[in-house]
Design a protein around this nucleic acid. Sequence first.
DNA 1: TTGCTCCTCACGTCACGTGAGGTGGC
DNA 2: TTGCTCCTCACGTCACGTGAGGTGGC
Lengths: 130, 130
Amino acid sequence: MASSSYTISELASEFEVTTRTIRFYEDKGLLTPKRDGQRRIYSASDRVRLILILRGRRLGFSLDESREIIDLYDPVGQRTSHSNAKQLTRYLEKIQLKQSALAKQLKDIKVMQKELKQAELRCLDALKNI
Amino acid sequence: MASSSYTISELASEFEVTTRTIRFYEDKGLLTPKRDGQRRIYSASDRVRLILILRGRRLGFSLDESREIIDLYDPVGQRTSHSNAKQLTRYLEKIQLKQSALAKQLKDIKVMQKELKQAELRCLDALKNI
DNA sequence: TTGCTCCTCACGTCACGTGAGGTGGC
DNA sequence: TTGCTCCTCACGTCACGTGAGGTGGC
């Protein structure tokens, strides 16, 4: 495959964030693009990490939580820290914690959707009766 | 029904937030409790507003967005601002905007759940093969 | 008097927004 | 030279966290 690299403004416009936001994530150690002189060069994997960070952001995660999520996606076995049972169990617990947090959020969304639906109906009804 | 009023610490412990957080919402005009001397007295409707704010917070909404949500729940017809078709249409549009935002968030959650499930399986598999 | 809960500043932090001022190659 | 995109400070903002220091009634 061809060289898949990106400039900061390419990523910024693709994901509709400011360049400041992307630089901020680098400052916090979440992204580590290469450099061409002063210019930042982002790889395909940098781009994937950014996608994960921004999805976390949309769900209200802190950067530390997104950092964890990225670590959780890291394939098992590619890191020596996962090579023993103790680490794997700890890792599994973290995954399950995130899962229950997501389940709770899903519940919140469904409740809010139901309530908005009702508000919509009340509104349509009021419009009809004008 | 009996007097349903609450102290700040009662609400704080019920919803697991700090009293600072609740006072902050008052500072921003989202809550307007009565006073008994210096002490704040929260009504049942203050409590409902707090519930809505905190649900918004769990979904990553800003306080201004939560303020809008609260307004959207406000029953049609109890506010004169809704008495004409133009206002009702504007209101309906806002509801539908929120609905599509929630739909997007729901999608994000489902993707993340799927990925965490895969990470969980990889992990369980690695544990089995130790 | 001691505890407890409440209160009001007020400075700190996190995740950026928003200029200010400067550089580099078509 | 002019534009464009990139860069590095650095101060501002939002949503609180976290003490500091003080009050009031059992």
